[in-house]
Nucleic acid binder design. Structure first.
Length: 281
DNA sequence: AACCAGGTTGACG
DNA sequence: CGTCAACATGGT
């Protein structure tokens, strides 16, 4: 990876990375684009415009440009967020021992797991249940625009303390349906100290699962998504309707052992792959 | 008009 | 412990 500071921002040349796939594969819900090349989004109160300068083939070098970003902002915020120091190629070499995963790597290998802010990830995936991605994005957008901080750059994701100060009726403009009470319960347990997210981050994964599932509206799948996308637990393996079909069709005898330690990454590749390819009946 | 959407809950055997 | 309808809302 080579990093170049320019007057306009930071240029990063690095192994294969697809911004379009990474930011629109259903792991995050707040990045917007009009051309599938330049994206604008927010992480932990920091806003960014980022462009794909070069995609290339999987074996080639990619390049991205972070607009109006200093070296310090890059190092402290965006380099970790985009998980730029993890060797995805090495992971994919292992996945390729399985034929289905090899196809998923070919198709989705430009995806990086974003290190999202834990509360935002948890809250977003509470909203995701029995919902479609378009509407998840709409509800999250309304959540930010209604209760987030309005800065010069845009709306931030509201902190749990802010949500916890609200009533169920206050959340009605979100049109989140039955999920509103779950959002409220999560915010109240976190703001009230009943659940300590930094402590969850430090727990053994089974303990973390149990802790998250004490929140009403957080079952096995949402907990797993929060752990993978909000706590960067790459072994977390969310099983949704799509992955359930994949497991039934391609892995009737179980998911391959060698892929389990990075199962979440494999899961995300498979998810993106099957969502864009017809599955056998 | 019925069915589906990155599921979870509470009620039932 | 496994099964199953209900759950709000919006899109086909």
């Amino acid at each position: 990876m080579t990093i170049t500071e320019t007057s306009g921002g930071i240029l990063v040349r690095l192994p294969y990375l697809s911004l379009a796939d990474t930011l629109d594969c259903g792991q995050c819900f707040r990045w917007e684009t009009s051309d599938n090349c330049t994206f604008r989004g927010c992480h932990n109160g920091h806003f960014l415009t980022v462009s794909q300068l070069k995609l290339g083939a999987p074996q080639d070098e990619s390049a991205i440009f972070l607009h109006r970003t200093t070296r310090k902002q890059f190092e402290t915020i965006w380099r970790p967020y985009f998980d730029l120091d993890t060797d995805y190629h090495a992971m994919q070499q292992i996945f390729r021992n399985d034929p289905t995963l090899a196809l998923a790597c070919d198709y989705a290998g430009g995806i990086r797991i974003l290190r999202q802010e834990p509360w935002e990830a948890l809250c977003s995936f509470i909203i995701s249940q029995n919902n479609n991605i378009t509407r998840i994005k709409d509800i999250v957008t309304r959540l930010c625009e209604t209760f987030g901080n309005h800065t010069a750059d845009g709306y931030t994701f509201p902190r749990p303390e802010r949500i916890a100060s609200l009533s169920l009726d206050d959340l009605s403009p979100l049109r989140a349906g039955f999920r509103a009470k779950y959002i409220l319960d999560a915010a109240q347990k976190i703001a009230g100290g009943e659940i300590d997210l930094p402590a969850v981050a430090a727990m053994p994964i089974d303990e973390a699962r149990k802790a998250l599932q004490t929140i009403c509206g957080v079952g096995p799948k949402v907990a797993e998504c929060a752990l993978l996308f909000g706590f960067y637990r790459r072994e977390a393996f969310p099983i949704d309707t799509w992955i359930k079909k994949v497991l039934n069709i391609y892995y009737p005898n179980g998911f391959p052992d060698f892929a389990v330690p990075d199962g979440g990454v494999a899961q995300q590749y498979l998810f993106h792959y099957v969502r864009n390819h017809p599955l056998p009946a």
